[in-house]
């Protein structure tokens, strides 16, 4: 399987994966790009969108193209933490406790409608996401890299849901907004299903792998070597720090967001075939990194502002790096 050795190879490979996924997920180029940036950058993604836009298809395609293990958990109000992580059970035959591993033991975990489960179940993912390990009965099990949690939530039907706590939101590198495809993309999608080019069901068998886990880790390693000028890094920090004292925001982003912006900007530069980060890379990744880490003030909410509009204003106001 292809494993890149140079940055140019990594760029070519990343673009190849992106192209392959775009063939399956029609009209969601931005979503595909952001999910791949998070994956290569070693982060997790929270995807928000109404049902039927291809979230599960995206994850299954990703698993297939990258030859990664994939598990899906449907979060429900009665889901228990052990249903996610696993538990120890007593085996009467051997008269010993046996560890039964939960669905979190995988490489790509789709946590569908994560906000439908109560806080304690959501919290079961905290250790998984941050430390890449699961502790059962006092014994820690490391997870196989690359590892990524893709959680989804539905912006509608908020009745009976449990909003994710800030601590957990902060652990997602990106919050990706998946929206309806454009008219011409939807037309293309329907035509492709009607003429049998693709199936309406979540069939990803036709996809062939592009790379594998080690290839992905090599890409990550190469992206770590991408240059960030001090001025550009300062620009990223100024954006994050401005969120903490900005009109319309009651709660800003943590230092973890600063790290996330820098890391994601590097991968974005890799996709663009550059070995250095520009202020444009910072701007491109700032929105998905920050939109779930900021909290609108009551005034701003009443005025009908959204995190997107506030972030746009913020990015307009923070001066691009000066030389």
């Amino acid at each position: 399987m292809t494993s890149p050795s140079t940055l140019a190879d990594a760029t070519q490979l990343a673009q190849g994966i992106e192209q392959r996924l775009n063939q399956v997920l029609i009209g969601q180029q931005q979503v595909v790009r952001e999910v791949l940036i998070a994956l290569i950058g070693g982060g997790h993604v929270l995807i928000e969108g109404v049902p039927g836009l291809g979230k599960t298809l995206l994850v299954r395609s990703l698993a297939k193209v990258l030859e990664l293990d994939f598990n899906r958990i449907q979060f429900t109000p009665d889901l228990m933490p052990t249903d996610v992580t696993g538990h120890a059970m007593y085996d009467q035959k051997t008269e010993q406790f046996r560890i039964r591993r939960g669905p979190a033991f995988t490489q790509l975990l789709l946590a569908d409608e994560i906000n439908r489960a109560p806080a304690k179940t959501q919290a079961a993912l905290l250790e998984v996401m941050q430390e890449r390990q699961i502790t059962i009965e006092g014994k820690a099990f490391s997870l196989q890299e690359p590892y990524m949690v893709l959680a989804t939530q539905n912006p509608l039907d908020q009745e009976g849901t449990y909003p994710l706590p800030e601590a957990e939101l902060d652990r997602f590198l990106f919050k990706v907004m998946i929206d309806y495809p454009a008219h011409h993309d939807e037309t293309r999608l329907v035509n492709m299903v009607l003429d049998g080019t693709i199936r309406a069901s979540l069939d990803v068998d036709s996809l062939s792998p592009v790379t594998d886990g080690p290839g992905l880790l090599a890409m990550r390693q190469l992206s770590d070597g991408i240059l960030i000028d001090e001025q550009v890094l300062d620009y990223a920090l100024r954006i994050v720090r401005t969120t903490r004292d900005f009109a319309g925001l009651s709660h800003g982003a943590s230092p973890r967001a600063s790290i996330a912006v820098a890391r994601a900007a590097r991968v974005h530069a890799l996709f663009e075939g550059r070995d250095f980060v520009t202020p444009d890379d910072i701007q491109q990744v700032a929105r998905p990194v920050l939109r779930h880490r900021i909290q609108l003030s009551a005034d701003a909410e009443i005025e009908g502002q959204t995190p997107e509009s506030v972030l746009s204003r913020l990015l307009d106001q923070v001066e691009a790096p000066r030389q």
């Binding site: 520009t278 202020p279 444009d280 701007q283 307009d316 106001q317 923070v318 001066e319 691009a320």
Partner: peptide, 9 residues
Amino acid sequence: LAAGSTEQH
């Protein structure tokens, strides 16, 4: 253009 406009923008 705004103060936050980059060169490419």
